[in-house]
Nucleic acid binder design. Structure first.
Lengths: 126, 126
DNA sequence: CGGTATCCGACACGATACTG
DNA sequence: CAGTATCGTGTCGGATACCG
């Protein structure tokens, strides 16, 4: 990741394409809302409204937007039950589940270093 | 993480405070630039300019801003050598190093599912 | 070299309203 | 219930200029 230098040979073009795609995906998922959605869906399949309640502070719009993005990248699956009222369920796919364990790591990290970070803040607040 | 319900007892206040702090930290680090900086510093100590070259596409401003934030949270250490010209080096602290392994996981994940994601995009682009 | 300050456009995001 | 569309604004983030 991060940065690589490519030549101008034909084979290098493929590497460059893959690299820019990697960046794009990284930017997509390295965002607060996307990660929180992944984390929430880790437990179980959830409906739109359930997700909204689960993820504190997310707006209707942001939830929709991020769900579309995650679906487009194949991280979640959207299942529509043609009932009245409609019932839409979101589930992690295999890639999504794999990412979830990484996100879990981030959450664990946050909990673990909470006190540590708080004291660092206090020190820098002098 | 995600969401919890607290009561109104005095002890609950502490939990609420810790929770809001956790959210704040999560929001801080769940951002593209911060994670890329952590990743870049994983290899070794780097100077400001080196970081800028290492992290492709980051602007002077964003780099400074995120470095300050990471320092404030105690994830990196800033060492100033009082020479001319100035020489400033950034190093991961222990919490920073711990987070780095999580970020590594994200990078690995990206590489691993690159093709998978690309095909998912193609399918949804119909 | 590393950092701060300022200006300014782009867009992230919330609020609101409307559909099937 | 789930989703789209629109609008207004606050923030993000790049470009530029200047300081120690």
């Amino acid at each position: 990741m991060v940065t690589k230098q490519f030549g101008s040979t034909p084979e290098a073009a493929d590497l460059r394409r893959a690299d820019s795609l990697a960046r794009e995906i990284f930017s997509d998922i390295a965002n607060k809302w996307a990660l929180l959605i992944i984390e929430a869906l880790g437990e179980r399949t959830l409906r739109f409204t359930e997700l909204r309640q689960e993820i504190d502070g997310i707006s209707h719009k942001m939830l929709t937007q991020n769900l579309r993005m995650l679906e487009r990248n194949g991280l979640i699956e959207r299942e529509v039950h043609p009932t009245v009222p409609p019932r839409v369920e979101y589930t992690l796919t295999e890639p999504g589940t794999a990412l979830r364990s990484v996100v879990d790591g981030m959450c664990d990290w946050t909990q673990r270093y909470l006190a540590h970070i708080e004291s660092a803040r206090d020190r820098s607040a002098v």
